[in-house]
């Protein structure tokens, strides 16, 4: 058991080191970074803030990991967040009970995911194109639901999902942990993990071996949609309103980035949900760090891009650089080299 843990830690070393460095820099820029206090039955502090703010992207990254492992990508998660938020807000305002609201919002996400899965799995559209459709149309649908306004609500039940806490821990963090744990159990305690990886590496061969690739793709995208809807509910509950234009804007890119930082290849195959979550936390730690360090906000995006390039370069070096000596180069790269020469 401890050997497996060691192997896991070794594999996660670049990401863990990277997170440590970012936290250290945050601490240097803002000495109170690691301070924590309990107030109004909730834990407060910058670290908690990182986790709390990062929760939506963590949840998105969990779903996105499954999609990317299947050699796909889901660009629509940001739009699905907006739609789920819009559904939750308008139904709350219309006076539906909380349970119905939640089911409807989550159901919206599943439906969107099924649509994507249908296009990818059954109509064999390229995932990037298939999900681009909903990425564009989804915001339109969200605007239709909210009728072009920002729908605000004051229902304490729904708001609890964004700002509430349970045993001093903020609700979004609890939800993110739950989703992660359930997803990990689902893929590793069933055969789904193996079958998704197999599908991602070679769909044709997997089908020949009897993997029900269409149904599996449908399920994967539906799960990703479900995650997006939950993230949408959290964001909407946090601001106590649904903003069809801005909810989840560009978050699909953060989610993809989190997965990539976590080391899952965009070419599909081997994946790790925990590592993607770590990737999402790295991104949020960076965001928070840049904000509290007092840099002019104009530099935020550029700084973020710079840091991300360094992370990815470090990863690429650790894969091809010093491990290269140990491992035979894959034939494909060898052939590609010859071709280029």
């Amino acid at each position: 058991m401890s050997r497996m843990l060691m192997a896991g830690l070794t594999r996660a070393a670049p990401q863990l080191i990277c997170l440590a460095v970012i936290l250290l820099l945050n601490w240097l820029a803002f000495p109170g970074f690691f301070d924590m206090r309990i107030q109004d039955g909730r834990i407060f502090g910058s670290v908690v803030d990182v986790l709390n703010r990062g929760a939506p992207v963590v949840i998105l990254a969990v779903g996105m990991t499954a999609v990317i492992a299947s050699k796909g990508v889901d660009l629509s998660v940001g739009a699905v967040m907006a739609m789920a938020g819009a559904v939750a807000a308008t139904m709350t305002v219309a006076g539906y009970p909380l349970l119905v609201v939640l089911l409807a919002a989550l159901g919206t996400g599943v439906l969107c995911g099924l649509w994507n899965g249908l296009l990818v799995g059954f109509f064999d559209l390229q995932p990037i194109v298939a999900t681009l459709i909903l990425m564009v149309a989804g915001r339109g649908i969200a605007q239709l639901i909210t009728e072009g306004t920002i729908v605000t609500f004051i229902d304490p039940g729904l708001i609890f999902f964004g700002t509430g806490s349970f045993f001093w821990i903020p609700m979004p963090v609890i939800l993110a942990v739950l989703v992660t744990a359930m997803a990990v159990l689902l893929v590793r305690r069933t055969a789904l993990g193996l079958l998704i990886e197999s599908l991602g590496v070679n769909r044709s061969a997997s089908s020949y071996a009897g993997v029900n690739s269409r149904l599996l793709l449908l399920l994967i995208y539906a799960f990703c949609g479900l995650c997006a809807a939950l993230a949408g509910i959290i964001v909407s509950a946090d601001i106590r309103g649904a903003d069809a234009n801005n909810a989840g804007l560009w978050l699909e890119l953060d989610a993809i980035l989190a997965v990539v930082i976590g080391g899952t290849s965009l070419l599909g195959g081997r994946f790790s949900i925990v590592m993607s979550v770590l990737g999402a936390i790295i991104i949020q730690a960076m965001n928070t760090g840049i904000l509290i360090s007092g840099f002019p906000p104009e530099y935020n995006l550029i700084l973020k891009a710079g840091v991300i390039i360094m992370i990815l370069l470090a990863q690429s070096l650790s894969r091809t650089g010093f491990l290269h000596v140990l491992r035979p180069a894959p034939t494909q790269t060898a052939e590609a080299k010859v071709k280029r020469a």
Binding site: L195, E197, V201
Partner: peptide, 19 residues
């Protein structure tokens, strides 16, 4: 149509039975 290149020998052998 045959091998799942990135997966291990073990996983490749188990795949059809598992599916």
């Amino acid at each position: 149509d045959g091998i799942i290149g990135d997966l291990s020998v073990r996983e490749n052998i188990a795949l059809a039975l598992q599916a």
